[in-house]
């Protein structure tokens, strides 16, 4: 259940400046955000407004310049990184879904999903059992042994959602996950994200331009020129 006292994600005055001097770009100019466990929020804004930058900061692949980031109440960034191993942080606590599914072509569907639990130290058998559960829940278990390149776009995107969920992370970051899909499939993906958030109490941020899915979010953050506004 959503817990008001400890949000899954909390951002306070988050700033990101690319470069320095004359060419410096202030992509984030003090972003505040609170997302509860199990909540799916939309993040919309024009091109260049800082959406991807925000996801990269949260995803611990670029360094914010200032501010605070808290996951489940724990400050992972407070002017500097508070966790040493960002790789493990990404592996265990953050799920990623991209615009393109970016599946690993040389692993079959099951192992694409099972790879994360394997990296986290689970046995191959346990990792695959977990992967099959998720594939089943996402209705792609019938393609479990297939090579990802043989799947349809919608199937691939569901596999990539299964992968994001594999280590049961408290948050999922999705960057335009429905962009290449038709509206029926796009709505299907959003429904899956909502179901997963409900079931696993996962907080999900969905960056989107997609007019078809924007109305489905209960809560939307608008971002413009590096600042967020809640609707």
């Amino acid at each position: 259940m959503a817990d008001n006292t400890t949000p899954a994600i909390e951002l306070r005055g988050l700033r990101k400046r690319y470069g320095s001097g004359d060419t410096a770009v202030d992509a984030l100019k003090g972003v505040d955000m609170r997302i509860a466990p199990g909540e799916v929020v939309g993040l919309v804004g024009p091109s260049g407004s800082g959406k991807s930058t925000l996801l990269k900061c949260l995803g611990a692949v670029i360094d914010p310049t200032a501010g605070q980031m808290l996951l489940g109440g724990e400050a992972i960034f407070d002017e500097v990184w508070k966790v040493k191993d960002l790789r493990t942080l990404r592996r265990d606590r953050i799920g990623f879904v991209f615009q393109a599914p970016y599946l690993i072509p040389f692993l079959d569907v099951t192992d694409n999903v099972a790879l994360l639990p394997m990296l986290a130290g689970k046995s191959n058998k346990d990792a695959r059992r977990r992967a099959l559960e998720l594939l089943e829940a996402l209705d792609v278990a019938h393609r479990a042994k297939a090579s990802p390149s043989l799947l349809s776009g919608g199937e691939q995107q569901r596999v990539s959602i299964a992968r994001a969920l594999a280590n049961n992370p408290p948050i999922i970051l999705a960057d335009e996950p429905t962009a290449p899909l038709d509206s029926e499939r796009a709505l299907g993906v959003v429904k899956i994200l909502n179901d997963m958030a409900q079931q696993h109490q996962t907080a999900i941020i969905v960056v989107t331009h997609d007019e078809k899915i924007i109305p489905t979010f209960k809560r939307i953050y608008h971002i413009r020129d590096g600042k967020t506004y809640e609707e």
Binding site: G59, V61, R87, T88, R90, R91, D92, F96, Y102, I104, P105, F106, L115, L116, L119, A120, R163
Partner: peptide, 11 residues
């Protein structure tokens, strides 16, 4: 691209 994804997911 696969290597970037592998790194992102914590390899």
């Amino acid at each position: 691209r696969e290597i970037a994804v592998l790194k992102l997911i914590g390899t």
